[in-house]
Design a protein around this nucleic acid. Structure first.
Length: 156
DNA sequence: GCCAACGTTGGC
DNA sequence: GCCAACGTTGGC
């Protein structure tokens, strides 16, 4: 069992969108960074915990908790020439990018990035390192526990 | 909108 | 394989 932080722009897919989806589950598409892809492909397992992070918005932060709900499979948007995520070098025979399904589990309270920066237990988070912009990054058990305690209250 | 930091591309 | 140029990310 591992833990991850995954970034989404809420204008595109928000945590509330996932809560409203059938089975509270959506396909995580659009990852176009090899390091992030490799985490999804090689290290994630069904049931892993996810911090659902809102980026590129007025108040960036952790919007809710989720879990990995499928193994890796080809990201459909790489084959769609009308998609901004289209990759002309990808083919169904040799896909380059992958998705996993993500299921929302708990909403809790919104935890702003600014607050995360003030918490000693989180100072080593990949997210908080200078220049870090990985859209999928590992979270330690200690970081996960600290964040769950901070957002606790209200089952989704 | 700005800009620092990072990743990718492509010439050599 | 180097590295300059370019494109992207993402907080502010």
């Amino acid at each position: 069992m591992r833990y991850w932080l995954m970034k989404s722009e809420p204008d595109e897919v928000s945590f509330e969108d996932v809560l409203a989806a059938p089975d509270r589950t959506v396909a995580w598409f659009g990852v176009r960074n090899y390091q992030a892809r490799n985490f999804m492909r090689d290290a994630m397992a069904v049931g892993d915990g996810i911090l659902f992070y809102h980026s590129s918005c007025a108040v960036p932060g952790v919007a809710g908790l989720a879990e990995v709900a499928s193994g890796p499979y080809p990201d459909a948007t790489q084959f769609d020439s009308a998609s901004p995520y289209f990759d002309p070098k990808a083919t169904p025979e040799q896909p380059r990018w992958i998705s996993v399904d993500v299921r929302a589990t708990r909403q809790g309270r919104y935890l702003p990035l600014s607050e995360m920066r003030s918490i000693a237990a989180l100072e080593d988070m990949v997210l908080l390192q200078k220049g870090s912009r990985l859209s999928v990054s590992p979270v330690t058990q200690g970081q996960w526990d600290a964040i769950v305690a901070l957002v606790a209250g209200g089952e989704a």
